[in-house]
Structure formats: structure tokens, C-alpha cells
């Protein structure tokens, strides 16, 4: 608890020193204050890293992140780093506010249309295909290596072709997302359905359970961790797919469009603001799925070992 108190103290000191330094930028006080604040903040995260309670587990990376943000701000402003190379976090925050309408519009186009539609179709499709070929060993043996191979290819390159087929608007981006997400889901669901061991299957057989029963009561629950893995992996893939597909051409809205256009116009604050939104959307959907996974598959050993260590 002592370390905790010291860590908190160091944090507060760092914050106050940091704010002072930010206000005094340009004066001779700024640099030593900034260094002091940095030192205090690093010391705080070291202190907290040694603690084992839940609060410190969260506090340590948060402080580390804040330190980075703050050091970024200080360095960029203090060393007069050109705006074009790296805008300070404050400018990015400002861009988030001033360009809110545009950014919300982009979010709607890219995330709420292309990503959501593509993700749903891709994940659902991969899952259904995996179920459909479940009873045919022949199809599994043929499709699984093919799916693995295609997953390893740069699927994103299909984007210009998708535009030719489905037009400039979001359906072509959704098509790219479908292609990117369907194979990981197919492969993972397949692998998941094979997780059960012969003894468990014999047990089900001894109950006289048929294919459907064994699937629902035993094999699907056993496959859930793998399916969730694919769902998590696919959130990232879907975001990447939709944004990058927009680099190849899009109507004048969308996050990928915003990034490429504003980067070319040197408005890096807007670019960073868009990336911040993408990061937030990505990590919150990742967290949401992670939360659902913990709720649904809390029996899985991977969660037990994590809570112990």
C-alpha cells in the first residue's frame, strides 16, 4: 500500500510539474521542470509496476501512456518539431472538436456501414461454411489449406477490383472486409470444432446423443474460445480492410479517404484525429468482444491461469 501511496504522490507531482512546464514553455524554467515531471512520472510507473493489486495493474500502463502523450506534447512544442512531422496531442484534440461533423460523417461511412456490414457477413459466412463442411472430411481437407493460403495473401489488393464490381461507395469496401474476415473465421471455427477429445465424444455417444446434440452440447461450446479469437482478430482486420480499401477510391467521405486526402494536404492534425477515432473504435470493439468472451467462456483454462499469475 505504501508503494501505491508513493506512486500516487509521484503521479500528482508529475502532473503539476507537467502543467507548470507546459504553461512556461519558451522560458528557461520549462525544460528542467519538464525533465523533473518526466522523471517523477517514470518513477511512478516503476513503483506501480511492483504492486500486484488491480488498481496498479491498470494505473501503470495508464501513467505510462500519459507520460508518452505528455512527453510528445513537450518535445514537439519545446523542440519546435515541424507540425507536418508530428502535431502535438493538443492540436489533435482540437481537430477532434473543430472537425467533429466531418469526422462523425466519416465514421458513419466507414465503421457503421462498410466495417459493420462486412464484418457481420464475413464472420457469419465463415462460421456457416465451417459448419456446412463439418460433416465432410473431404471438403475440410480441401478447403482448410486453401483458406489458410488465401489468409496469408495480401487480400487488400482486391480493393480496386471490388470497386470495379460494386462501385465507389461503401459496398465495395464491405466486400473487401468480407474477404478479409471470412477465412480466419472459417479456419478458427474448423479448428475449434476439432478441440474435443475422443473421450468426450465417447461420453456423448454413451448418452445416445446424435450429431446435432453433440454439436450443440459439446463441440460448439468447446469451439467458442477459437471462435472468439477469430472475432477479435477480425475487428482489426475489418478496420484495416475498410480504411485501406478507401485509399483506392471512394466518394468524398470515409476515414480512409480523410486520411489520404488530409495527409496530402499536410493537415496532419485531422489525420491523427481520424486515427485516434479508428484506434478508439478498434480497441473498444476488441474490449467488447473480450468482455463477451469472459462472460461466455469463463470456464476456459486460459482465464484461470490469468487470474492466478
Amino acid at each position: 500500500m505504501n508503494g501505491m501511496a508513493l506512486g500516487t504522490m509521484a503521479c500528482t507531482t508529475a502532473c503539476i510539474l507537467g502543467l507548470l512546464a507546459r504553461l512556461l514553455i519558451g522560458t528557461s524554467w520549462a525544460l528542467p521542470l519538464a525533465l523533473l515531471a518526466l522523471a517523477a512520472s517514470i518513477w511512478a510507473s516503476v513503483r506501480l509496476a511492483r504492486q500486484n493489486d488491480r488498481l496498479s495493474m491498470i494505473a501503470s500502463p495508464v501513467i505510462f501512456g500519459l507520460t508518452i502523450l505528455w512527453a510528445w506534447e513537450m518535445l514537439v512544442v519545446g523542440l519546435h518539431v515541424p507540425f507536418i512531422l508530428l502535431p502535438p496531442p493538443s492540436a489533435i484534440a482540437l481537430a477532434l472538436v473543430t472537425h467533429f461533423g466531418e469526422l462523425a460523417n466519416d465514421f458513419d461511412q466507414t465503421v457503421l456501414h462498410a466495417v459493420l456490414a462486412g464484418y457481420a457477413i464475413g464472420c457469419g459466412g465463415g462460421f456457416l461454411i465451417a459448419l456446412a463442411i463439418d460433416r465432410s472430411l473431404f471438403l475440410q481437407r480441401g478447403l482448410t489449406p486453401l483458406a489458410n493460403m488465401i489468409s496469408a495473401m495480401p487480400i487488400i489488393g482486391i480493393a480496386p477490383i471490388a470497386i470495379e464490381w460494386f462501385g465507389f461507395d461503401w459496398p465495395s469496401k464491405a466486400a473487401v472486409v468480407v474477404l478479409m474476415t471470412i477465412f480466419p473465421m472459417l479456419v478458427n471455427t474448423r479448428a475449434g470444432l476439432q478441440q474435443t477429445n475422443p473421450m468426450e465424444q465417447d461420453l456423448m455417444r454413451s448418452y445416445g446423443a446424435g450429431y446435432i446434440h453433440t454439436l450443440i452440447k459439446l463441440r460448439l461450446p468447446a469451439a467458442l474460445p477459437m471462435i472468439f479469437n477469430a472475432l477479435k482478430l477480425n475487428t482489426t482486420l475489418a478496420m484495416i480492410g475498410a480504411i485501406v480499401a478507401e485509399f483506392f477510391g471512394t466518394p468524398t467521405r470515409g476515414m480512409g479517404f480523410r486520411i489520404s486526402v488530409e495527409a496530402a494536404r499536410m493537415n496532419l492534425d485531422i489525420v491523427w484525429a481520424t486515427i485516434a477515432i479508428a484506434a478508439l473504435a478498434g480497441s473498444s470493439s476488441f474490449a467488447l468482444i473480450g468482455w463477451a468472451e469472459r462472460r461466455i467462456t469463463s470456464w476456459h483454462p486460459s482465464f484461470h491461469t490469468r487470474s492466478l499469475s
Binding site: L48, A49, P61, F64, M239, A264, V271
Partner: peptide, 22 residues
């Protein structure tokens, strides 16, 4: 481990390829 690892993981929920033009 405590301070860097969460950020290494968070960095991946960002669509990294999106940064490419920038």
C-alpha cells in the same frame, strides 16, 4: 512488461496500415 506490453497490444487494435499515407 507492466507498462509497455499493454501498449504493444493496444497498438495493434489501431489499424496500423491506415497510418501509411501519413
Amino acid at each position: 512488461d507492466r507498462s509497455l506490453m499493454p501498449w504493444v497490444i493496444t497498438s495493434q487494435t489501431i489499424p496500423i496500415l491506415a497510418i501509411a499515407p501519413m
